[in-house]
Amino acid sequence: MKTLYKMPEAITERPTTYCPGCPHGVAHRIIAELLGEMELTKKAVIVWPVGCSVFGYYFIGTDAVEAAHGRACAMATGIKRAHPESFVITYQGDGDLASIGIAETIHAAARGERITVIYVNNGNYGMTGGQMAPTTLLGQVTTTSPYGRDARANGFPMKVPEMLATMDGPVYIARAALDSPKHIIQAKKFIRKAFNAQARDLGFALVELISSCPTNWKMTPVEALERIKNEVLPIFPIGEMKVNEGVA
């Protein structure tokens, strides 16, 4: 028998704390695979966020720190500047990155900080019980938008990669989705380039991963991935928004 796919070494034995069908685990696996393939596992420091992935350090076996809510990019900046030999990744949700941590994210991008940001967007605050996030779609019902997100009252969904792609600091900006094997393979290709950006000392890179939240969306895992395809991707289209020379 020839092995085609195998769980990467950097995925720990510890079962995740995520709900059944939550794609966080898929994002973890992609990161762990790339760390292994690019021989970065022993150099990596992952800055974990506040949110469902707050315990991420139990699931990916690298050196890790736990940031305050939204501060991952600032903390990552401190680590990278103090110890440039470290390979520094932040792993953040949409509440963490696009709401409370948007200033830290934008400025890290503007500085061209040599860090890699994995930004997992599931359109709501998962851990706190499904509140409205900056990325919640118009009309989407959450626990704090019980009548559906209304643009007049709550504004519009924020598209972070599109914003960052207008800046000079980032060298690689992309959005992928975790809703199908095909998109997951693409997500890994994108994250590889984002890792290249740091490994080759080129600049800031961010990959948004469109994810689901079956529990708070009140759907089965399969239905939740269907919703990504039908409702989320038309608003948050996948693709590479900025690809500087050298990252490919």
Binding site: V65, R71, A74, M75, T77, E104, H107
Partner: peptide, 20 residues
């Protein structure tokens, strides 16, 4: 030397550097 975007960011940069 790094001028941060805010004191909030500055102290979290300090936190990150302190972790090293």
């Amino acid at each position: 030397f790094l001028q941060a975007e805010s004191e909030v960011a500055a102290i979290n940069m300090v936190y990150g550097a302190a972790c090293t």
